[in-house]
Design a protein around this nucleic acid. Structure first.
Length: 415
RNA sequence: GUGAUUGUAGCUCAGUUGGUUAGAGCGCCUGGUUGUGGUCCAGGAAGUCGCGGGUUCGAGUCCCGUCUUUCACCCCA
């Protein structure tokens, strides 16, 4: 392991071969699928004004209060590294006026949260996410979940689980909070210490408390959804119907809580057993974000790429499967052959062929070993004989056979 | 931020109650006679023992601090 000077910051890591091949597969397939769903790529800056996050994610959320890399720049401006992708995306779309109210964008980008690292949690992590704005129809929520499900399929990920619920409309919030508090009142003394505090600060957190006793109590009282308006419940029902219609399985879980302030109506989460305590590979939901006068409605999701990778590995999908293979290795015997092969390599590469060679005139054995470990399909050998006769010896590494051909015939043979 | 945990060659790890020049496997490099890979054989290179203090005649082994790893809490993807 790299140490001292060579070590990246805590919770951050260098991503390199062979693992990088898995990343590239994930990105390539995501881009391809998003194009099929009519999403355009958006790249926003990693740094934003602090207010962008405070206003959208919520001033009092843990993400903003405890986890952000927020600081003053040299001009005394309050800025922060983005902890998630939605805020910046909406900041961008809001600036595009009417156009931003009818957009489908996706991003693949690093995010930053200054937390203690653990399984599936880094300080710099990466998300692939989408936002579909301006569409108030609950069917958009269902389509968004469908897209996400489709993406997991494209990646070859199995064993994941969708859980869906609703956060209701802003006008429901008070009724839900009051309803839950009243329902919990008779059990007050039995709740854990944390929940004693949560019941006043953030009742919803009592719902997903991991304490066994708290869970027993929560199971006895009505769910948050039961306190919502008919309209909110109908909205969720429509989304669920649509998912069923498309053949997508989703478990309704009224205990699901999403902490960011901007969520309204549908919220969901995709979990995978391979992950440990941080078992969500993706989260999503409908939101309303007001940075200016007008609130922008939208629906979107974000998937944690590191967690996707962990899950993929648990499915037996490895980076090695996506390593570049094949191509040609040029073996040169003697200085002159090296020079000739450098010219040839340039031509081959110009024709789109992957090829490599040793620049030092090492022994043939050494060069063949290199060719083999690089997984070359063919080896072209040139020594004094070949150069004099204007020929090449071309060897098929799979078959082990080789033949001598005229240099001028090379292109015919390669086609 | 709280509580645990880890750190020895590129990688995975040994290293006995503190005692000479710190080891193995894999990988890497070079060979096994004229220009041929995967197997085999031989040889070789490679380590600030995370870092900084301290205890000791002597520290990879003990103590303190620090950084990092992993795990959980909190929260999230």
């Amino acid at each position: 392991m790299a140490s001292g000077e060579f070590q990246p910051l805590q919770g951050m890591s260098d991503i390199y071969a062979p693992e990088i091949y898995l990343w590239r597969m994930i990105e390539a397939r995501a881009r391809d699928l998003f194009a099929r769903y009519g999403y355009e790529e958006l790249r926003t800056p990693s740094l934003e004004k602090l207010s962008v996050f405070k206003r959208s994610i919520g001033d009092t959320t843990d993400v903003v209060q405890k986890e952000m890399y927020a600081f003053e720049d040299r001009g005394g401006r309050e800025i922060a590294l983005r902890p998630e992708g939605t805020a910046g995306t909406i900041r961008h779309l809001a600036g595009r006026g009417a156009e931003g109210l009818n957009a489908r964008v996706f991003y693949i980008a690093p995010m930053f949260r200054c937390e203690r690292p653990q399984a599936g949690r880094k300080r710099q992590f990466h998300q692939v996410g989408v936002e579909d704005t301006g569409e108030p129809n609950p069917l958009a929520d269902a389509e968004c979940i469908a897209l996400q499900q489709h993406l997991l399929e494209e990646w070859g990920l199995t064993g994941s689980n969708i859980q869906i619920s609703t956060r209701g409309m802003p006008s429901d919030r008070q009724a839900v909070a009051d309803g839950l508090r009243n329902a919990l009142q008779p059990y007050l003394g039995e709740l854990c210490d944390d929940c004693q505090r949560r019941i006043n600060e953030n009742v919803l957190r009592v719902i997903d408390c991991k304490n066994e006793m708290c869970q027993k109590i929560v199971d006895r009282i009505p769910s948050a959804v039961d306190f919502m308006s008919d309209e909110s419940r109908q909205y969720l029902e429509t989304v669920i119907q649509s998912l069923e219609n498309m053949g997508i399985k989703a478990d309704v879980n009224p205990k699901l809580v999403r902490g960011l302030d901007y969520y309204v109506h549908t919220v969901w989460e995709i979990t995978h057993d391979a992950l440990g305590a941080q078992n969500a590979i993706a989260g999503g939901g409908r939101y309303e974000i007001a940075l200016g006068k007008k609130a922008i409605p939208g629906v979107g999701f974000a998937m944690g790429m590191e967690r996707v990778i962990t899950s993929l590995e648990a499915c037996g999908i490895t980076a090695g499967q996506f390593a570049p293979k094949g191509g040609i290795w040029l073996v040169s015997l003697g200085e002159e052959a090296v020079a000739e092969n450098m010219k040839l390599a340039r031509e081959l590469r110009g024709k789109g062929i992957r090829c490599s060679m040793e620049l030092e005139a090492k022994s043939m054995k050494a060069q063949m070993r290199k060719a083999d470990s690089a997984g070359a399909e063919k080896v072209i050998i040139r020594g004094e004989d070949e150069i004099e006769k204007q020929t090449l010896t071309i060897k098929d590494m799979g078959q082990g056979t080789q033949e001598e051909i005229q240099l001028s015939n090379l292109w015919k043979i390669l086609d």
